[in-house]
Write a protein that binds this DNA or RNA. Structure first.
Lengths: 215, 215
DNA sequence: CCACACATCACCGGATAAGGGGATGTAGAA
DNA sequence: TTCTACATCCCCTTATCCGGTGATGTGTGG
């Protein structure tokens, strides 16, 4: 049972050299080689690949857009992105689009076969620097995927009301009118909030309240 | 210049065999081998490793808790998790704790040296199935990290700088000092920001900037 | 009963922000 | 070249905020 592979890349030299590389593996079969992704869904329907090597920068439609379309039609196909770019946006866009691996082109010669093998066995090959980017991103969004322990500042109910008014951009006067208390009372509450949050200005209060989801 | 490596693992056999593996590389130096992480910070302070191999399951304190402590004290140290477990929770907890790689123990013999090399050169080695889990997780949270359909307010570069200072709680004076411009210039920028964001107070600016991720 | 936390209100003086003007220089686009 | 966007700076007035200090009333719990 051979592994069917297709390539999308606008550079003929790269397509050819990848073809040669793949030939070194007896069970790899190159079933398609395309210079653009405009007809990718049809191309794939005809060539029925198991694995797709996708260049990111191509005329007409980018590889990332293509990945979205392909994954929608053929969710089981494994897609390996290959590019010279390693800017964060492209990396994350590719992953979110549904790519299963991300290989920088300077690793093509040495790592392509290994990477396809990894895909075949359920892995996700990534060039080292890409893997690092992905881990860093995971850490930075950990606040979203993890519950995030919000430190308790012991704000009273009233103080929280005032705080949420502040976050909504109200001035002290407006807050007073809103909560039917005097301007001075608002000030008292705000002073307490300042103490409890260890800040010294409205902007800090708002930033802290939003970032730590106190509101 | 040799690479200093330390191991935390409660299994002596594994520590020993890793030690043997590392000896095959002339520039690897095993500077510490510990059967628990209760004194990890001290252990590390004394042995000064560049890279740590961390087992997850250990008596007393888990490797994940240890990673958090270690990263807080020594953020530059690269930590490679090594375990037989590949449940999602442990993987993501490790990453969020600050681990730079994640290796399953059945890959130890064949991949450990390569993985340490990758760490050394700024990569993030992961066993294939782990990498797949990470990518899948990224995709599943993409709805959270991507759909920042940020309306473009056409802020200039300078205005964005000022804005981010505001969000960090700086006063106009402090911003001026920070950016080496006068108080009046800061004011000019802020006025423009007010216009462009359609707001009328600092708190609104901060709230809008954070909520819409303009910063 | 008495302390304590909470919410309420008040005054003062200094600091800072807001609103509305106008001005200069530079670089790039029309 | 002229127009435009951008960044830079200045002045004046008013509004708002900040910090400190203090006071009153109302509950709750030891």
């Amino acid at each position: 049972m051979s592994l069917r592979i297709a390539i999308f890349d606008d550079n003929k030299n790269i397509r050819d050299s990848i073809g040669l590389l793949l030939m070194t593996e007896p069970d790899f079969e190159l079933v398609g080689s395309f210079c653009h992704v405009l007809d990718c869904v049809e191309d794939i329907r005809e060539s029925r690949p198991d694995v797709i090597l996708m260049d990111i920068e191509m005329p007409g439609m980018t590889g990332i857009e293509a990945v979205i379309k392909i994954k929608k039609e053929f969710p089981h196909i494994q897609i390996l992105m290959q590019t010279v770019f390693e800017d964060d946006d492209r990396v994350f866009d590719s992953i979110c689009a549904g790519a299963s691996g991300y290989l920088l082109k300077n690793f093509l010669n040495t790592k392509l076969v290994d990477s396809i093998r990894e895909l075949q066995y359920g892995g996700s090959p990534m060039s080292p620097s890409i893997a690092r980017k992905v881990l860093n991103k995971m850490q930075s969004v950990s606040s979203v995927i993890k519950p995030e322990e919000t430190p308790d500042y012991h704000l009273t109910a009233r103080e929280k009301e005032v705080l949420s008014c502040l976050v909504n951009g109200l001035s002290y006067k407006m807050i007073g009118a809103d909560l039917n208390i005097s301007y001075e009372t608002v000030r008292s509450h705000v002073k307490k909030i300042y103490e409890k949050l260890h800040v010294a200005s409205l902007t800090e209060v708002v930033a802290k309240a939003i970032n730590q989801r106190i509101v």
